[in-house]
């Protein structure tokens, strides 16, 4: 698998996701500077977490207008898998790759902790190694993760099975108590219509080995590496 990680000024999980990609695929991804206009040929594009441009203006707003993003959007539209994690998800919504917006957490505070996610759609490149309904433990670490979309958009996401992950309790109940940030319908991650773009607030790259406190995130990178191996 050849992958590219886009590095924006202020990205700070670029190295973390590169480690995860290399651990699963055996290949180090190419780190691509935001100011470039051309993307190397690759099987997967990752928009990493962090505070691109310091989250100034609005999380992801400035990064979405970086020179490289024109190429990222074009590739995404042409079917290349694109994964956006945390700030990467925020950039995706700002760039129009995914609908909706990530607002300030309902509790107004930054939150870093493990949460439980219910896998809602395992029929994607990203989620194939999970079972539908499986409960996984993945950390969140964000200030602006409160997913919002208008009722029509939300309805379309739900009816087209485009919610990939939902916040839930440790035994899989999707309720307000399990919702860390106020996201509508407990949404933690969504897909584009074609299913090749996934944006999610949680950080699967942070739990890829038992010594880090868990390895539920590993399956996402393993799945990508396996399916994109010969592409």
């Amino acid at each position: 698998m050849k992958s590219c990680v886009i590095v924006f000024p202020g990205s700070n999980c670029d190295r973390d996701v590169a480690v995860a990609l290399e651990a699963s695929s055996g290949n180090a991804p190419q780190m691509v500077w935001h100011g470039n206009t051309e993307l190397p040929r690759c099987d997967l594009i990752v928009l990493p977490g962090g505070f691109s441009h310091g989250d100034y203006l609005r999380s992801g707003a400035m990064a979405a207008r970086a020179p490289i993003m024109r190429a990222v959007v074009a590739r995404a539209n042409a079917g290349t898998p694109v994964l956006g994690l945390c700030n990467g998800f925020q950039i995706m919504t700002e760039a129009g790759l995914l609908p909706g917006a990530l607002m300030r957490n309902a509790g107004l505070k930054f939150i870093c902790r493990d949460v439980f996610l219910k896998v809602e759609n395992n029929g994607t490149l990203f989620t194939r190694r999970y079972q539908n309904g499986q409960i996984i433990r993945i950390p969140i670490s964000h200030h602006d993760g409160n997913y919002f979309a208008d009722p029509t958009t939300l309805d379309r996401l739900e009816s087209n099975n485009r919610v990939a992950f939902r916040y839930c309790t440790s035994d899989g109940v999707v309720n307000a108590a399990a919702n860390p940030n106020g996201s509508l319908n407990n949404i933690a991650g969504i897909l584009n219509e074609a299913g090749n773009v996934l944006g999610m607030m949680p950080h699967p790259e942070r739990l890829i080995a038992p010594e880090l406190g868990g390895s539920d995130g590993r399956a996402m990178f393993d799945a990508l590496a396996e399916q994109l191996q010969c592409a």
């Binding site: 973390d16 939150i111 870093c112 942070r206 406190g213």
Partner: peptide, 16 residues
């Protein structure tokens, strides 16, 4: 307090 701090970024926190 510490849930307001990102204590896992850099992917090397083995004791939180």
């Amino acid at each position: 307090i510490w849930e307001q701090y990102d204590h896992m970024v850099m992917g090397d926190t083995v004791q939180r």
